[in-house]
Amino acid sequence: METNLVMEGFKFMALGMGTVFMFLIVLIFMMNLMSIIIHRFFPEPMLKEEVLASSVPQDNKKVIAAITAAISHHRQG
């Protein structure tokens, strides 16, 4: 009887840690699966952001070019 309770404790430990690990391992598989599926079938709208990001500096360049042209024209004139 004496050792029984501690043994019970170890049983709880095995069961508990088993559940926690099983849960997390299944979760890891699902996370990996999900990222594969999402990357294959729903490729990020990230690209759009990049397009947007790259288009802004171009506009800036155009504006800068226009300003410098105007300034040089003004100085010449």
């Binding site: 309770l5 501690v6 019970e8 404790g9 170890f10 709880f12 430990m13 508990g16 840690m17 926690v20 690990f21 849960f23 997390l24 391992i25 979760l27 890891i28 996370m31 990996n32």
Partner: peptide, 25 residues
């Protein structure tokens, strides 16, 4: 994702202490 295993391992603290508390009583 595999770092989730580390978060699982740390739960040994819970069940280890359960054994400890049972042993103390």
């Amino acid at each position: 994702p595999k770092t989730a295993l580390l978060g699982g391992a740390a739960q040994f603290g819970i069940f280890g202490t359960l054994v400890g508390a049972v042993a103390l009583s």
